[in-house]
């Protein structure tokens, strides 16, 4: 039994119940979501583990990891602030929001704060166009939306998250 299989034994059982018995491959994406949430990225060993669990090749699992933007194959900040600056949000100032937030954090879009806590990225439309500026945070809690944001509010959130880490 590989480590991933052991760690997620219960979840895997539940997942397999969702799909036809001979279609275990369908469980690839949900499994990758669990790993992504818990480790912040999906390494080669995890790819091999998942492949073994669902009975496909590591190459096939890697294809899935590579295709979807919410899976990452390299580690970044613990919390990924993913700011939508797609057309509708940009029409409501998302570009400026992104620029100012990055400036306040002293990083460029795509970069991570020196403490390794926050990565700021620009992403495509998140279906919250009426509540721009907005972003989602991808981290150990999964994905959470933050709408109608100000730079100050976002900075406050980064501090809260960092504080939580210190306590933990």
């Amino acid at each position: 039994m590989n480590q991933t299989a052991t760690k997620y034994a219960r979840e895997i059982e539940d997942l397999f119940a969702k799909y036809p018995a001979d279609r275990k491959q369908s469980a690839v994406m949900p499994l990758l979501h669990l790993i992504q949430r818990d480790f912040g990225f999906i390494n080669k060993q995890a790819v091999r583990d998942v492949a073994e669990i669902v009975g496909i090749t590591p190459t096939e699992v890697a294809s899935v990891v590579g295709f979807y933007t919410l899976y990452h194959d390299t580690p970044q900040g613990k919390y990924r602030f993913q700011i939508c600056n797609d057309l509708p949000c940009a029409l409501r100032g998302a570009d400026q929001f992104l620029a100012e937030l990055c400036k306040s954090l002293g990083i460029q879009p795509g970069e991570t704060t020196p403490d390794g806590m926050i990565t700021v990225e620009a992403v495509m439309c998140l279906a919250a166009c009426d509540k721009a500026p907005m972003f989602q945070v991808q981290g150990p809690q999964g994905i959470t939306y933050h709408e109608n944001q100000t730079v100050e509010g976002a900075l406050q959130l980064t501090k809260e998250l960092a504080g939580k880490e210190v306590k933990a």
Binding site: K44, V47, R48, T57, P58, T59, E60, V61, A62, S63, G66, F67
Partner: peptide
């Protein structure tokens, strides 16, 4: 061997 990434970044890769 399979595709990795997507769009114009699509490359052939192997993880075996």
């Amino acid at each position: 061997i399979g595709f990795y990434q997507r769009g114009r970044n699509l490359v052939i890769d192997t993880s075996s």
